[in-house]
Simulated assay, not measured.
Amino acid sequence: MKRNIVIAAVTAAALAVGGTATALAASGDDDDAAAPSAKVTASEAIAAALKDTPGTAVSAELDDDEGGAAWEVDVLAPDDTWHSVRVDPVGGKVRGSYADDEDDAVEIRAALKHTTLTATEAVEAASAKGRVTSVDLDDAAWEAETHTKGEPEHEWLVDTRSGKLTADDD
């Protein structure tokens, strides 16, 4: 969540000074390029991350950035420590993890109290619409992005209790 705000700010700043190419590179949102080469699903990446770093998965995103393609799974540990876990999208091995200074653990814990669906269950619900390249817990829903070959990425909201899928029109 916070990372998306930072990415948006960097993108806006780059565009303001005429750096369109810089903005596109800085966004890191190159899921379309990484999706075809990924053999590991979002559910498998989440499982690998939780095996490495116990807690609750609150997001997973297939990224293709300067470190190469990887699943980035955010895990909130029981002590409210935030961890980012990078998972290889081809072999499913954890490449590394680190504790992150995330200050919205309280917000995430509050959102988790209102959900009966895990990140993996949200991925499974969204998988009906294509290959899931991103899932993220928001205040009111799981937000998922799907990729289907030859089509643009689609955004979905997954109800946190029922798993009902609706198009995200934002």
Rank of each mutant, 00 (worst) to 15 (best):
E155Q: 13
P54I: 07
G150P: 02
S59K: 10
S37I: 14
A141P: 07
A42S: 12
A49I: 08
A14D: 02
T11D: 05
K51W: 14
E153K: 15
A60Q: 06
L76R: 01
E61I: 05
A38Q: 07
A23H: 07
A25V: 09
W156F: 07
K2D: 15
A13G: 15
G150Q: 06
V90S: 01
A26P: 09
S162R: 07
H147G: 05
A105R: 03
P89A: 00
D63L: 15
K149N: 09
G18T: 04
E143Q: 15
A69T: 11
E61K: 04
V6M: 12
S97T: 06
E61L: 07
A35H: 14
I46L: 06
K51S: 15
D79L: 06
G68K: 08
A26H: 12
L15P: 08
D65G: 09
K129T: 07
T11C: 12
S27M: 14
L62R: 11
S37K: 15
D30T: 13
G68R: 07
A8D: 13
A122H: 03
V106C: 03
V85D: 00
D64W: 11
P36S: 13
D168F: 03
G92Y: 02
E153H: 10
E61T: 05
T11F: 15
A35D: 05
T115G: 10
Y98I: 04
S134D: 05
D101W: 01
H154L: 13
D139E: 15
A111F: 13
G130P: 02
G91D: 02
A105F: 02
G91P: 00
P54G: 12
L76C: 04
T166L: 06
V94S: 00
D136A: 11
E44N: 09
D170H: 01
T81F: 06
K39P: 06
I108H: 04
V123W: 00
V17T: 12
P36V: 10
A57E: 10
V87K: 00
H114I: 11
L157I: 13
A70P: 01
V132E: 00
A77E: 06
K51I: 14
D159P: 08
D79H: 03
D100E: 09
V106M: 07
K164I: 13
L137V: 04
S37Q: 14
A14V: 04
A128L: 05
T160Q: 13
D103H: 02
A141I: 14
D88W: 00
D29S: 05
E151Y: 13
W71N: 07
V73P: 02
E121Q: 12
A57R: 10
